[in-house]
Every structure is written in C-alpha cells, then in structure tokens.
Computed example of a mutant assay.
Amino acid sequence: MKLNEFVVPEAILPELKAESKESAIRQMVASLKTAGKIREVDEEAIVSAILKREELGSTGIGRGVAVPHTKHPSVESIIATVALCHDGLDFESLDGEAVYILFLLISPPDRPGDHLRGLETITRYLKKDDFCSFLKQSTTQSQVVDLLQEADENLV
C-alpha cells in the first residue's frame, strides 16, 4: 500500500494552527469534509470516534509524530490526511514531546486489513528521518503531495 492510494491531497493542511489535540483532530476531519470525502452529517461522529480512540492511549507515537485514526461506517474506503503543525502541539505523546506531523486515518469497519495496512504504511514512512525532516519543512499542499509521491516511488 502506498500513501498516494489513500491520502487525500486536497485535504492536506500544511499550516495547521491548533491549540489542542481535539482542535487538530477537528480541523483534519473538517478538511476531509471540505474535500468531499466525508459527509457533514458524519463529521461529529467521526471526531467523537477518534477522540474516543485517543482516550485509550495517545496516538502521539513519539519523535514529533501522531497518527490519530478510527474505523467508521460512513467511509467506503480508507482515507487519510496530513497536517503539519510548525509550532508543535501537545498531543500527550508517549515520549512527552510536541507533535509536528499528523496523519489522520479513517477506514471502513468491515475492512480491518486495510486499516492495519494503512497504519503500517504511515508508520513505515514516518520511521525515516529524511522523510520527516522534509515533511516538517513543507509549507504548501503541493510540497507535501510531491514529497509523498517521491517517498512512494522510492519505497523498497
């Protein structure tokens, strides 16, 4: 699975300004709504599902990265967006550090394999220091999209 198969380019937020974990999640879900990937009627339920998942344990996995995610019946296939918070965000990360890179993932409940493959793909990319470094420097949607495409092409 490659990032460009499920990251929605028009939902990418290269300059996220959020004061809290919930604010960041709400903005990312709203970007997917604006991009036409989720319906307005489902927006609050998706936010609630992601926040409920966060109560189980932060998806701030360390090294300045968070991957909030959920399964929700309103989506027909796996979708994701990326947000960059250049000022850093307290995401209650496992390592206690601020988060700068966020990938938000939503998948249908009846496709758990896709959900796991999506999470695995995201974390595989985020383990690469160069990828994270370039991503943190991106300031436009097109820069992020280009970086994701380049990473997909160089995937071994």
Rank of each mutant, 00 (worst) to 15 (best):
K2T: 14
L3S: 08
N4F: 11
E5T: 11
F6A: 07
V7Q: 08
P9N: 13
A11T: 07
A11V: 04
I12N: 09
I12H: 09
L16I: 11
E19T: 12
K21W: 04
S23I: 05
A24F: 09
I25P: 04
R26M: 10
Q27I: 00
M28Y: 03
M28P: 02
A30D: 12
S31T: 06
A35M: 08
A35Y: 06
K37R: 14
E40W: 05
V41F: 08
D42L: 07
D42N: 15
E44Q: 15
V47G: 07
V47A: 08
S48G: 13
E54V: 04
S58G: 03
T59I: 03
R63Q: 13
R63S: 13
R63H: 13
G64F: 03
G64N: 06
A66D: 03
V67C: 03
V67F: 04
T70V: 10
K71T: 14
H72C: 10
V75K: 09
S77A: 11
I79F: 01
A80L: 01
C85F: 00
C85W: 00
L89P: 05
L89T: 04
D90F: 02
S93R: 01
L94M: 13
G96Y: 03
E97V: 00
E97C: 01
A98C: 00
A98N: 11
V99F: 01
Y100N: 11
I101C: 02
L105C: 02
L105P: 06
S107V: 05
S107G: 15
P108Y: 09
P109V: 09
D110L: 12
R111I: 03
P112T: 08
P112A: 12
G113Q: 14
D114I: 00
T121Y: 01
T123K: 06
L126D: 01
K127G: 04
K127R: 15
K128E: 15
S133R: 15
F134G: 07
Q137C: 12
V145Y: 07
D146M: 09
L147P: 10
L148V: 13
E150K: 15
E153V: 07
N154P: 00
N154Q: 14
L155G: 01
